[in-house]
């Protein structure tokens, strides 16, 4: 057989030799390993996608999904009417909880501002100044009166 688009002489020794090459034989191990894989596949078939389902299953599943959608559209107003009181009650409770939280936070803020700035800040300032003063006096005493004996 002459390949298409060939410009090699079919009588060329290399072309003839290539044509006459014997077909390599499959190893003895190929068929057993393929069949082992086949039996494993049969034992645990992979899940098929929707596109690979039988036609009947595809039609049935599509009809089921459609029925669910139609049902939801029809039932939706009824469900809203049924659930509306419960939703209103829950939202009222949530509003109350949020309101209480706001109130608690504002009281905590007032308390914080009332205690922190008038009392805690001056106290911390006094403690800091006194600490520095004590350290300074201690250092002066150590150097002048005790002559650095502590070192």
């Amino acid at each position: 057989m002459t390949p298409r688009g060939v410009d090699f002489d079919p009588l060329d020794p290399l072309t003839r030799a290539l044509r006459q090459l014997p077909e390599p034989r499959a190893p003895q191990t190929l068929a057993p390993r393929v069949m082992a894989a086949v039996y494993a596949r049969l034992a645990h078939p992979p899940a098929r996608t929707w596109f690979e389902w039988p036609r009947v299953w595809q039609v049935s599943s599509a009809a089921g999904v459609l029925a669910v959608l139609v049902g939801m559209v029809l039932v939706w107003p009824m469900a809203v009417a049924l659930l509306q009181p419960a939703v209103d009650e829950m939202s009222a409770r949530a509003v109350a909880v949020v309101h209480n939280a706001e109130l608690t936070l504002s009281i905590a803020g007032v308390f914080f501002r009332a205690v922190w700035f008038p009392l805690v800040v001056p106290f911390l300032a006094v403690v800091t100044v006194m600490t520095i003063a004590c350290a300074t006096v201690g250092a002066m005493l150590d150097r002048v009166a005790l002559g650095g004996a502590s070192r």
Binding site: E23, R25, A26, M35
Partner: peptide
């Protein structure tokens, strides 16, 4: 049918492997 497939495999394995 696994047996039918095995016959198919034995028939064409040399060609595919080559």
């Amino acid at each position: 049918d696994a047996r039918a497939f095995e016959a198919f495999l034995l028939e064409y394995q040399d060609m595919v492997y080559a």
